[in-house]
Design a protein around this nucleic acid. Structure first.
Lengths: 339, 339
DNA sequence: GCGATTTTTGGTAGCGTTCCCAAAATTGGT
DNA sequence: ACCAATTTTGGGAACGCTACCAAAAATCGC
């Protein structure tokens, strides 16, 4: 309990191994062993040491330990955003695997900027992680260089493709976009539109859009509207984009939204305007958020196994089994009421 | 790039200060200065050193640095869950303040268990954080002891009350529950019910319920239903709980849900059963998720300033301004279409 | 009961930095 | 040009722990 904020001096007398050793009347190494390899210490001393540890409230200093042993038990996860529901699940999946194995996760976010990613990467490598999980396959040359030089396993997660630094786990967002069109076409819709947001910074979203456009082209069609909303991905953004689309342009009978938030916003706005979904307007999203099945009609969407990707990424870092260097986790189109 | 998973030996030849110093033809301390206090080094040497740093791809080792300086620039945030939207915002708020000041955040989760919290706490203190943000005010004696002994600023966030370890930032969940009843009563509803989930482990939810019951009692009323769903907080849980409530019990004309997820689930189920909201049934939630304003009718709910709490917690750790030891961030009841 | 193993314990030398101080180089005044 | 004051540079001793090896204690076989 400090009186006023963080203090920087070495002013708190920390309890060290040596103090515990003195208190227990044993050598310093014995204390170290009680903590790290208790099976190598006699029961008698172990009891004495544990007693001293408890009395003094000793907590081993990881910096000293890691410096001496060159092991950090740290894995860093680099994501574009801390707030999204999407990345939380990746982190959770990875943590489920890593925590029980004694690894600590350190999360850093890049705010969807490749330059920031490089900065973050450099900063984070100072913590000498034993593995890195990083989002996406688009990085600056500097980032690639840093990661390569670190000589630790690196998993690029979420998207498949490019020239992987090391291990790549994800799915083809292009194929996902394509699957969305195919589904809409199959259902008989022909006036298709696209709604995205923040498209300049989200490469995966760009690829979903591209897949969508390609699919349309393959069917000899063109997008009626191809909107990228400037604001953040959010429910209101979807509503606003759809309002704009309806007010200014030609009629559309199906919309592919780059994410479920937008799709649900579109759904709300469409209903407000008296459109019947899916009769007058079909809507398909991407992500399968938990809300997506709760809205009415439930949203047709494409689910990516996010938590699974986190788990696989963690396992790949640990060298579990003989996981491939490239894992396509695929995606699943979930047809529901909105199409 | 490692061939197969994390390797533990000191087998990768790391670039150290010394190597950079040799390369640049300067003393080791000069390199250290170029990195930490560049203004104290002549331009000539600075250039030479930076060149060497770049050529060798040197990244300072934080373990050595922290061990020597007794500064870690680390702040840990302990939350009950990694997946919820709620805690992500706290973390984000804290990160917004701490990142620019050069602090790294380390997040750990307790899975809503006080015992795990103590374990997590002990583990995390090994990283010698310069401050701790921990969720809630309920902790084991051991946790309190650990945190007290660490002699670092500790912020207990999210809820106000108890006997704070150090700094306490939050709101009264009891008052929030109370506000919910008052609102419903004022709107003329009299057959009030409560729906919660995972109530045994979520102390804040318990207090909201208590406030609700107290408010009812104060008005000389009793809850028609008082349900705690066993599963996780989720949309379907709300739907299931409401279905159960409708099928088995007396009529209710208003429901207070311990969280918006449940409330939205209730809303969906009510509509499916042909109930008009808010005429036949009023619904009020807690949290004000982003979906809550997107559903139809929009959900009346109670908003807590989550991101703000994260920011304030971070500022309190930094000793910014002269923040009080106890900050009530309050809450806001947002009346919308569902009541 | 005694030497040969085997198990348990402890000392010492780093790990890669920063802090503290002293030495060297630069600057300024006259 | 010389001395004093100032700025810039570098050396050595921590920081708290683990790896490695040697010493001590316990165990075993006969």
């Amino acid at each position: 309990m400090a009186v006023d904020g963080i203090h920087t001096k070495r002013d708190r007398e920390t309890v060290t191994l040596k103090q515990v050793a003195e208190r227990a009347g044993v050598g310093i190494m014995t204390v170290s062993r009680v903590i790290n390899t208790p099976e190598a210490v006699s029961d008698k001393l172990k009891a004495r040491v544990n007693e001293a540890v408890r009395e003094l409230g000793y907590v081993p200093n990881r910096y000293a330990g890691s410096l001496a042993s060159a092991r950090t038990s740290l894995v860093t996860v680099i994501v574009p955003s801390l707030s999204g529901r999407v990345f939380g699940e990746i982190i959770k999946g990875a943590d489920e695997i890593l925590s029980p194995r004694g690894y600590q996760i350190m999360v850093s976010n890049t705010a969807y900027s490749l330059e920031d990613e490089e900065l973050v990467c450099r900063r984070v490598l100072g913590w000498r992680p034993e593995g890195v999980i990083i989002s996406g396959i688009d990085h600056t040359e500097g980032t690639r260089r840093l990661l390569l030089d670190a000589e630790i396993p690196v998993v690029e997660a979420l998207e498949l493709g490019g020239n992987p630094i090391d291990i790549n786990i994800g799915l083809s967002h292009r194929d996902a976009g394509r699957a969305a069109v195919d589904h809409l076409l199959e259902r008989g819709y022909r006036q298709l539109s696209f709604i995205g947001a923040q498209m300049q910074i989200d490469f995966r979203a760009q690829r979903r859009r591209q897949g969508f456009l390609d699919g349309l082209a393959a069917a000899g069609l063109q997008a009626v509207h191809d909107i990228s909303f400037d604001g953040k991905v959010a429910f209101e953004a979807g509503a606003a984009a759809f309002a704009q689309l309806q007010d200014t342009g030609e009629a559309t009978d199906a919309v592919f939204c780059v994410s479920d938030e937008l799709a649900i916003g579109v759904l709300g706005e469409a209903q407000r305007r008296g459109l019947r979904v899916p009769q007058d307007l079909a809507i398909i999203g991407f992500n399968d958020l938990d809300v997506s099945s709760a809205v009415m009609p439930a949203l047709t969407t494409i689910r990516s196994p996010r938590k699974q990707m986190g788990r696989l990424a963690a396992q790949a870092l640990l060298g579990d089994g003989d996981l491939a260097k490239k894992i396509d986790v695929g995606f699943e189109l979930i047809p529901r009421g909105s199409t």
